[in-house]
């Protein structure tokens, strides 16, 4: 079990030894995002851009034009809100080979409060043509995605949770853009999730099992592109479909699944997530409980939904 930010820093260090084009551009948060590990290992390839995220994005585009593979290091919210215009025009519209290491994603950002929590990033980034949007669940998947993104030619937004979540994948794991992953089969309810929330869904499914409810879990690490057919096929086998995300229920994974299923199937989609609210400073457990995203709260909410359905 390793925090995804440590995975970010350590994977960049590994890539630095094998890929001479890898650079890291930091907006003065490297010791938080753990890109500082790369700074220590390759000081000449670590470019401090200061507290100026828009310029950081633009400089990366210039470097990418010369064949470098720039990884950006800052908090998610500063990329998707402050620097969204250069990401839109300079990166996405030109298909620039820039990799956005969006650290401190979602609600669990280490007591920062709503100013630093980003629960709209998936909605913003998945609406952007040419952008690949991915959210790893654990350390193994995090490393696989960072390695894949480095090889891929084009912009990638990698949603990285701050803290650790239990390992669910082994070293055989291979990332493929668009591919969804069935973490658990189950017919009464299908929980569809992304990022470390998928791990909490797996735990919720175990709690439901104890109550005799068969819950499946579909993990969607690749928000864009996504294999729509896999989502439809998984949904067809489920009695109830629930999306669960550490994100607004508007426009993120819940939006994605609702869009896909409403065009192809008669399924209802229940969305668990942040219901049009800002976050707050608090311990992770408090936040997950309050916003209904802890394993026990997800299980409880599913039970309520199943009762209401009958």
């Amino acid at each position: 079990m390793k925090a995804l930010r440590d995975v970010f820093g350590e994977t960049l260090v590994k890539l630095g030894s094998t890929n001479p084009n890898v650079l890291v551009l930091d907006a003065d948060l490297a010791n938080s995002t753990k890109a500082d590990k790369f700074a220590m290992a390759y000081p000449a390839k670590f470019l401090q851009m200061g507290i100026a995220e828009q310029n950081c994005v633009g400089v990366a585009v210039g470097l990418a034009s010369l064949g470098f593979v720039p990884w950006l290091s800052s908090f998610t919210v500063f990329f998707t809100h402050r620097a969204v215009d250069p990401i839109r025009m300079l990166v996405a519209q030109t298909h620039a080979n820039v990799k956005i290491g969006a650290a401190y994603s979602g609600l669990l950002t280490g007591f920062t409060g709503k100013t630093h929590q980003d629960v709209q990033d998936l909605a913003i980034m998945r609406a952007m043509p040419d952008m690949t949007v991915v959210a790893p669940a654990d350390a193994v998947e995090g490393e696989a995605i960072i390695r894949w993104a480095t090889e891929y030619q084009g912009p990638v937004f990698v949603r990285l949770a701050r803290d650790a979540s239990p390992d669910i994948f082994d070293q055989q794991y291979g990332f493929a853009p668009g591919k969804t992953i069935t973490l658990k089969d189950g017919g009464d309810v299908l929980l569809i999730s992304t990022g470390p929330q998928s791990v909490r869904c797996l735990q919720a499914a175990e709690l439901l099992q104890e109550q005799g409810i068969s819950a499946g879990v579909l993990h969607v690490p690749s928000i864009k592109p996504v294999n729509q057919e896999e989502i439809v096929n998984a949904a067809d086998k489920a009695g109830l479909i629930v999306t669960v995300e550490e994100h607004s229920i508007y426009g993120g994974l819940g939006g994605l699944v609702a869009e896909v299923l409403s065009e192809t199937s008669p399924h209802r989609v229940i969305r668990f997530g942040i219901d049009d609210k800002w976050g707050e400073s608090a311990p992770n457990d408090f936040l997950l409980d309050k916003y209904g995203l802890s394993a026990s709260r997800v299980a409880q909410r599913v039970v309520e939904r199943l009762k209401a359905k009958k």
């Binding site: 034009s65 839109r88 025009m89 519209q93």
Partner: peptide, 17 residues
């Protein structure tokens, strides 16, 4: 060399180059 139009962004790309 890059796309421009939304103002204020070209110099950053030039810095990168």
């Amino acid at each position: 060399e890059t796309s421009t139009g939304s103002l204020g962004q070209g110099l950053s790309v030039g810095v990168g180059m």
